[in-house]
Simulated assay, not measured.
Amino acid sequence: MADNLLEEVKIIDNKTPDTAQSVQTQTTTTTTTNKDDSSEPEIENNSEHENADQNAAVEVNNQEKPETRQCWVCLSTDEEDDETTDWVHPCRCIGSSMWVHQNCLQQWIDEKQKFNSTLSVACTQCNTEYVLIYTKHNGKLFFAIDLCDRILYSASPLAAITCIVGSIYWSAVCYGAFTVMQVLGKENGKSLIEHSDPIMLLVGLPTIPVVLILSKLIRWEDQILKLWFKNNFRYPLLGYVMGKPAAKSREFTENNLLSRETMADPITICRNFCSALILPTAATFFGGLFFGDIESNLHRTLLGGLTFIIGKGLLKISLRQWQYVRISHRKILNFVDAKT
């Protein structure tokens, strides 16, 4: 028994260093693992500090670096200009439309004002009115001259319109008085004007040329041509005098037979204006030519005017119908080469 106990004690003593060594190894491993785990937050904290430092450096650089300005008129930047170039931001605009050269904006304002310093100018984008400061006049004389110039500049359009309207009005009055004496006779017309109320003359005489011009809007010749067209050109007398047109479509007939004159045409306006104003003279002439035996100047002029209007209308109808017949028989020939 004593020998067995001694052998077991020796075995235990031989195993003790290995066991202690393994325990020490486990302890070292655990300590290393704990150190590695504690180092990960430290690395993350270091990376966060580095990013914050970089952002702070970028902000400092942006603050130290000035904003690049660009003129929205000439599109040049302050890097291309001299240091003495005068810049201004006259409105609420931001970004590329914020800055502009003082000289460029001055030229732009001159174009908008058209050298009229009384006009206000505003930004075309934000509609902010520019604040413009002018130097004060050194004396009262120049201030008075400048004030008079502004008043004359503002009143010139009204004065011009007044002169034009007044000239037209008094021309109409004179024309009306001349027409009255021409139609009634010199003595009768003069007597009528002298014994009439001045207010009635100032109102009535200018209406004479107006009525004559408005009468040209009545185109009775077109009504006769439409009546002839609706009856399929069955009037034998007109067909014998003016010829029979070829069979054409209704659209073709309306486009070529009826009048295409419009009041939008300047030539038509001038033609109707002159024709209206010449009517009293023509009526007097034809009245004396065909109705000279009538003693009353008024009756003679009325008959002469009626004769002139009817004769002119019939000639116009005949001319238009002849033109229509001529166009309706128009033909287009084949091309023949002269060399062959």
Rank of each mutant, 00 (worst) to 15 (best):
M1A: 14
M1V: 09
A2N: 06
D3M: 09
I11Y: 02
I12N: 00
D13K: 12
P17H: 01
Q21K: 08
T25A: 13
Q26D: 07
Q26A: 13
T27F: 05
T27L: 07
S38I: 15
I43G: 02
N45L: 14
S47M: 13
E48Q: 13
E50I: 11
E50H: 03
V58F: 15
N62D: 15
N62V: 13
E67C: 02
W72D: 01
L75F: 08
T77A: 03
E83N: 11
T84M: 08
T84S: 14
W87A: 07
V88A: 01
C91P: 02
C91N: 10
C91K: 00
V100C: 12
N103E: 14
L105W: 02
Q107F: 02
W108K: 06
I109H: 07
K112C: 12
S117W: 04
T118F: 10
L119A: 06
N127E: 13
T128S: 14
V131Q: 12
L132V: 15
H137I: 00
G139C: 15
G139E: 06
F142P: 01
F143R: 09
A144K: 08
I145S: 09
Y153Q: 11
A155I: 10
A155W: 06
W170C: 04
A172L: 05
Y175S: 12
G176D: 01
F178Q: 04
T179H: 06
V180M: 11
K186T: 13
N188C: 10
N188V: 11
G189M: 12
I193E: 07
L201S: 03
V203R: 00
L205D: 05
V210G: 02
I213S: 10
S215P: 00
I218Y: 09
I224D: 02
W228A: 01
F229A: 09
Y235F: 11
L238E: 00
Y240T: 09
Y240S: 10
M242E: 01
P245M: 02
P245E: 05
A246Q: 09
A247P: 07
E251L: 06
N256F: 11
L257H: 06
L258H: 13
L258W: 03
R260P: 02
R260D: 09
E261D: 15
T262Q: 03
I267N: 09
T268C: 10
T268K: 03
R271S: 15
I278P: 00
L279I: 00
A282K: 02
T284E: 03
F285E: 04
G287Q: 05
G288K: 11
G288H: 15
F291Y: 14
G292D: 14
D293G: 09
I294H: 05
E295R: 10
S296K: 07
N297G: 07
L298Q: 06
R300P: 08
L303D: 05
L303W: 04
G304V: 03
K312G: 06
K312T: 08
I317W: 02
W322N: 10
Q323T: 05
Y324E: 05
V325C: 12
I327Y: 03
I327E: 09
S328Y: 04
H329M: 01
L333P: 04
L333R: 13
N334A: 12
T340A: 15
